[in-house]
Design a protein around this nucleic acid. Sequence first.
RNA 1: GGCGCUAUCGUCUAGGGGUUAGGACGUCAGAUUCUCAAUCUGAAAACCCGGGUUCGAUUCCCGGUAGCGCUACCA
Length: 502
Amino acid sequence: MNDHPRHTFFCAFSHPQAKLVEMANVRVRFAPSPTGYLHVGGARTALYNWLFARRHGGVFILRIEDTDVDRSKAELVTAILEGLTWLGLTWDEGPIHQSERLARYRELGARLEQSGHAYPCFCTSDELEQRRAAAQAERRAWKYDGACRNLPEAERARLRAAGRPAALRFRVPETGETAFDDEVFDRVALRNSEIEDYVLLRSDGNPTYHLSVVADDLDLGITHVIRGADHLSNTPKQVLMYRALGAPTPAFAHLPLILGPDRQRLSKRHGATAVGAYREQGVLPEALGNFLALLGWTPPGGKEILPIEEMIQGFDLKAVSKSNAVFDLEKLAWMNAEYLRALPPGRLLGLVEEELRAVGLAGQAGARDEGETFAARVSLLQSRARTLKDFSGSFRAFFSDQFDYDPEAKQKYWKEPALGGLLAELAARLADVEPFTPADCEKCLRGLAEEKSLKAGLLINAARVALTGQAVAPGLFDVMAVLGPKRVVARLRHSASFFANA
RNA sequence: GGCGCUAUCGUCUAGGGGUUAGGACGUCAGAUUCUCAAUCUGAAAACCCGGGUUCGAUUCCCGGUAGCGCUACCA
């Protein structure tokens, strides 16, 4: 891993030609830490990295940031990989685990120490905590006080000999400022006096994020660091390290954060944040991806529903917004419905089958066993589905004979006691309809309504509840045709019994 | 607290020194109809506040305010 090929990094903006060349060698990475599931914010970061790589014919690398051994979990790595794969964000290299690169981080730490850019700090966590608390009590801003910054070599040797563990800290210049040009936020500058001597290597020898991220981005030849804006304030620390290492800095692009409806950072409190949760709720990967892409990026032309190819074509970091965005579930739902409606029949059939199987409806009467009408039923429902879940939920009566009547639907359309007899009569007449087409069913029902001088709607609505359990469904006669005479007659007869006792 | 970043309809955003401030989701009304979805038509809905610069600021500058982020031997 240490001898991974270095990739020349061009000083991008100095020369127009240089920029072109550089773009041909784009290398980006998505670097989640396995301390949680794949968050939609992380997914968007991954998506932008992926789009950027594809747009410029570059390489998309996956890296697992598991240097926090206490909080990292192996099963979460699997979940993250699955989430990315589901979204179609496949990686060209990796996954690389930071936990396997410890030697390299220590080597870089030693180099920094040798060159005087870092020094050992013998302060214990407890000591630091005390001093921090004291400073806070006096309402003093706390920053590492540099207690070990200028320890004489003899003192360091003595402490080491005494077996005192030491962390390695970066020696931040006391004056001047550190600035960098961000692709999204433009120029960001920070006075060095605001930056503390941060830890590079913990006293147990494990690297912190700052060291491992710089080491890896350097070794992997990353040209563009595209990550969440929560890293914006820490970027100067890393820029300082690149310089201390005598290495060129990559380009940075920080992405605004995704917030919940209350404008707080999106978290479990707001409901589902994991990509997997949306999958389970019946959201299509392309819909979630499209929705996420639009959260902070405006494609040229402003078209909202756009296939992945068009996203790749038009992706531009310069068109990424600087301000945080609220995750709007309503819009996601709309977009999902939009994608569901546009799904080629074959693909939808497969997904519906999968959904029915997941809830144990697959073998039931009305499901795939009646192949000829399965496709017809799904297509009748297609324009009305918001998620895949609808097929096993509100559309259940189309795939199973075991379904409940929605209480509100009954209340609304089964008010008339006389309806019991009418539904039974309708069942009897429908039993003779041949062929059982929507037009013939309609003629039959309307004929009955006319004879009894009733409004057809009364009968239609009552029958809808009887056949589907719902007040809301596709056109009744289409439903009849798709359900078939046997089922229609049986359901109407069954419903009539509800009125008998009333 | 310190530091950084951000600020256009409820939400995602376009725009930009002179515009009827545009689009999308959502909302409301209407058309259609057996309910719904879809579709079509229409409506309500925004430039955070205060100073400057300017003939003219929503746009540029400064300040304020608010929100978010960072401020760990987390990432």
